[in-house]
Amino acid sequence: MTLPQWRRNLMNQIASLSLTTYPDPAPPKIAANAVAVVKQIGASLHAVAITVDIPDVSNALSSYLLDLPNKIREVETASRKCGTTLLQAVAREASQSGVTLTTQEITAPPALMGDVAAKESRYFDVCLVGWESDNQAARMAAEAILFGSGRPTIILPDAADVGVLGHVVIAWDGSRVAARAVADAQPFLERASTITVVTVTDEKPLPGRDIGERLAQGLRTRGLAAGAASIQAEGRSIGTALQEHALKIGGNLLVMGGYGHSRIRDFVLGGATEGILSELRLPVLLSH
């Protein structure tokens, strides 16, 4: 079957993968999962290892009692070694899967690692980050990139292997950020065998009736296999309700708007976004 003209005219995308190394290394499955995602949309991959650069604030007494300069060098060396190991793992996965890869290593002070990752991510089409709930560095990078890169961010859970992203679930409330997420998810939507638009009806006032079906109809008009469903949170967090329903119907990728804002590098997440990140169970494309 011939693809519609708008599909053939898509540029080849480049995905950015941010690999944290301090204080915790990026999740172990991130290399394989990131390569699996970009292969499915025919994208190239740019992997960035972010290593720590700790300012030397020692004085004569701390140097004598704590050997602080040497400890700093040890931490920085371990961070660089971790970055090299992560980039090598990505290179192996990319080579095995036939994915075009470029790599980079950058340094940043501990408090600015997320900001640096976000700024680097602005030069690419989509951002990939690994996620472990107890990994401080992974959370810092994910939140900074989501709210600071200006790019859609796919958060990949370390608890699961990324398979074929054939069933895409769209969380739809008719909002601006939800519409932005649908547009950003186009490379995945056009390759999906099934698309389900899900609206949570008991969480907040919605802009109209049958808004999910209206979006699904628009996607069908574009030649995509889309349907709509309405669910109720029933006391659960909206993030939990969306993920549970997505998994129940065989969803492989959840697409939703990312709510929240940053204030002096302290991230304040909206309820839906916080619910997703508190227990990530499948890949989620978040767009802010």
Rank of each mutant, 00 (worst) to 15 (best):
Y259V: 10
A226D: 00
A159M: 08
I154N: 00
I145L: 07
E76W: 07
I155K: 05
E105L: 12
R8W: 06
H46V: 08
E203K: 15
H245S: 10
G257T: 09
R8P: 02
D53R: 15
S278K: 15
V116G: 02
L101N: 11
A229F: 09
D24Q: 11
L206C: 05
N33H: 00
A141E: 02
A171H: 12
A137L: 02
V75S: 12
L87M: 01
A137E: 02
L242D: 03
R8Y: 08
D53F: 07
T20A: 14
M256F: 08
Q88L: 02
F124D: 10
I30A: 04
R222H: 14
A246Y: 03
W131R: 14
S121N: 14
E203I: 11
R73I: 07
V169C: 09
S193P: 07
Q232R: 15
L86E: 13
A108E: 00
A181E: 11
N135I: 07
A226M: 02
I249T: 07
S278M: 07
A118T: 02
F124R: 07
R220L: 01
A226H: 01
S62C: 04
W172C: 13
P110K: 09
P28Q: 06
L253C: 01
P110V: 04
A226T: 00
R139N: 14
G212N: 03
T240E: 15
V99Q: 09
I249Q: 06
V284A: 09
T199R: 01
R222M: 13
A94Y: 02
A32V: 04
D24I: 14
V57W: 12
D53Y: 11
A49C: 05
L156I: 06
F147M: 07
T51A: 14
R8T: 14
D210N: 13
G83P: 04
H167P: 02
L101E: 08
V198P: 03
V90E: 03
P23T: 04
R151G: 02
R180V: 00
S79N: 06
A183P: 04
A181I: 12
A60T: 12
D56Y: 07
A78Y: 08
K81S: 11
A43I: 04
I72G: 00
T103A: 08
R176M: 14
A15E: 06
S149L: 04
G251V: 11
T196S: 14
R151A: 03
A60C: 13
S16G: 10
R151W: 05
A225D: 15
V284M: 09
W131E: 05
N33T: 00
V116S: 09
E143C: 14
A60K: 09
L219H: 13
Q232L: 06
G260P: 08
V198Q: 06
I154Q: 01
